[in-house]
Simulated scan of single mutants.
Amino acid sequence: MADTDVKPPKSTTKQVLGWVGMLVDIGLPWIAFTVVYAFSDHDLKLALIVAISAAAVVGIIRLIQRKPIANVIGGFIGVGISAFTASRTGQAEDVFLPGIILNASFFTLYAVTLITRYPLFGLLYGAITQTWLAWRQDVELNRALTRVTMVFAAQVGIRLAVMLPLYLTNSVSALGVAKIALGLPFYALTLWAAYAVLRGSMSEDKWDEVKENFTHLLKGTQPTPPAPAEDKKADEPAREN
């Protein structure tokens, strides 16, 4: 009898493990801070020490495993800035202040580019593909880039709407939970929504034309430049005389 067990594709399993690893790299220091602060009778100094130590331990483990540490470095810098801010003010809620300011800055940037009809993702798309402002002449592409910019504006807007009231009411534990929930898991949901909006904003032909560029745009990578004309000719089979 044929084996009917279905195994998940290796690539899918690898992606899931990668997301889990990123969640640990970035989220563990914040989890450590929230737990220690809650169960140490609000000892800010101890919570900050544990959070920074957790980030350092994750970095060491990744180095031993010879895995990329870009996320660890980014998370460590973020925790370090937040810890410095809170240690200077003596207020635990100020651990989350740099993140709130960063989200407010992004929201302002998205809003300005949308109001001026030069959406941020349009400018990024033009820069990555080196087509610059050509997307503004393409109705479908212009609409798609505007909508995806709205998606990311909504992302930071939701973060602000949740975290700013908690910050103003000194709800440190709730801020910790919100920081974790609105971090990588929420960003993954935003990426899914962005792709859904992009796909729904374009025809099949247009999607096939630009989807690879969108993938590079959302990942922050550079598309492979087209082969020079000389190389293309060299690849063509020699014609008979």
Rank of each mutant, 00 (worst) to 15 (best):
T34N: 08
T34C: 08
Y37N: 09
Y37P: 05
Y37F: 15
A38M: 09
F39R: 01
S40V: 09
D41R: 00
D41F: 07
H42F: 07
D43F: 04
L44D: 03
L44Q: 08
K45N: 14
L46R: 11
L46F: 11
A47C: 09
L48H: 05
A51H: 06
A51D: 11
I52P: 01
S53H: 00
S53N: 02
A54V: 09
G59W: 08
I60R: 11
R62M: 11
R62V: 08
L63I: 11
I64A: 11
Q65C: 09
Q65F: 04
I69F: 15
I69Q: 03
I69S: 07
V72K: 08
V72S: 13
V72D: 05
F76N: 01
F76T: 15
I77P: 02
I77G: 07
A83N: 00
A83E: 01
A83L: 01
F84A: 14
T85P: 02
T85H: 12
T85Y: 13
A86G: 02
S87H: 06
G90H: 08
A92L: 01
A92S: 04
A92N: 00
E93I: 08
E93H: 13
D94M: 11
V95H: 02
F96S: 03
F96W: 01
F96E: 03
F96P: 04
L97F: 15
P98L: 08
G99Q: 12
I100N: 04
I101L: 15
I101D: 12
L102W: 14
N103A: 14
N103L: 12
S105R: 10
Y110A: 06
V112H: 00
T113E: 14
T113L: 04
T113I: 05
L114C: 07
I115W: 13
R117H: 15
Y118T: 11
L120V: 06
L120F: 15
L120H: 03
F121K: 07
F121L: 15
F121H: 14
G122Y: 05
L123M: 11
Y125M: 10
Y125L: 09
G126K: 08
G126N: 10
G126Q: 09
A127Q: 13
A127C: 04
I128G: 00
I128K: 13
I128V: 14
T129F: 01
T129G: 01
T129P: 04
T129Y: 02
T129D: 06
Q130N: 14
T131K: 15
W132N: 13
A134V: 10
R136S: 13
D138A: 10
D138F: 02
